[in-house]
């Protein structure tokens, strides 16, 4: 399963443009400051917004093509999407929220176990913690057995401890998911921890300069200890074509 993206969309203040290929069993982290067009990109991939031009292909299937006049609606793209804030259906219990998305009900129990939320299966979203809600949101997104998983800053509303736990859970489960994962975040450390490929975005476009500036700033702020050198220890380096690729599995702790 490979997601090929080449899109552009004019927003009020900037143009979002990206061209990349996201392979299976791989997490592509898109990192950049607020307002850089990351969420717009995720929404275009999910079918919630229409690009002005370009193509989006998932394997052989075209989801969007401005030239061919194709735009597959969100309902038929079969992606899993986890939003920044918790968007579980408030009138349903956790289990029913997951069943809501599942075509195979047996998947629900497995997901509840994997994400460690079996004990809250009968509770409604308003009566559980933020971390539990986001775990349930992951279950819901995966219950549909998606062809791609899209994550829009899924951990940004969580406290540091819960965020860490969920980041490591994602690291653990991503190896078992035979689909491309696209993870949008403004947190560089999270991107380097989770991403197999990291794409920096600024003002709607890929921006290796932004990434280098951020790494350098962090490097200076921590008196040369973190995270610039660790990034290098992890094998992160700028590639031709503006991408930053981590070549081994070591992460920043």
């Amino acid at each position: 399963m490979t997601l090929s993206i080449s899109v552009s969309k004019q927003l009020e203040t900037l143009t979002v443009e990206l061209e990349t290929v996201c392979p299976s069993n791989s997490l592509t982290a898109i990192v950049g400051p607020s307002g850089s067009g990351k969420t717009t990109l995720i929404r275009m991939l999910a079918g919630l917004e229409t690009p002005d031009a370009g193509t989006i292909r998932c394997n052989e299937k075209t989801w969007f093509s401005s030239k061919e006049g194709i735009s597959v609606p969100a309902q038929h793209r079969r992606v899993g999407l986890v939003f920044q804030d918790y968007t579980l259906f408030p009138h349903l219990t956790v289990e029913k929220n997951i069943l809501f998305a599942a075509e195979n009900p047996d998947v629900t129990l497995d997901l509840l176990k994997t994400f460690g939320i079996t004990h809250i299966r009968n509770k409604k979203p308003h009566s559980i913690s933020g971390g539990e809600r986001q775990r349930a949101a992951f279950c819901q997104a995966l219950a549909r057995e998606p062809v791609a998983l899209l994550l829009d800053e899924p951990f940004s509303a969580l406290d540091v401890t819960t965020r860490r736990k969920l980041q490591h859970l994602l690291l653990e489960i991503k190896t078992r998911l035979p689909i491309p994962i696209i993870h949008v975040t403004h947190d560089l450390e999270e991107a380097t921890l989770l991403g197999d490929t990291i794409i920096a975005m600024e003002q709607g476009k890929e921006s290796p300069n932004w990434l280098n500036t951020q790494l350098l700033a962090a490097h200076h702020a921590t008196r040369g200890n973190l995270p610039y050198e660790q990034c290098h220890q992890c094998g992160i380096h700028a590639q031709a074509g503006y991408k930053i690729k981590r070549e081994n599995n070591a992460g920043i702790r």
């Binding site: 969100a74 038929h76 899993g80 259906f89 819901q140």
Partner: peptide
Amino acid sequence: DKRLLESAAVLGLSPFQTFYR
């Protein structure tokens, strides 16, 4: 919350299903 409607669409619900579910 409009995101609930978007979430329903991404989960495969038609507009009519989204309305009643």
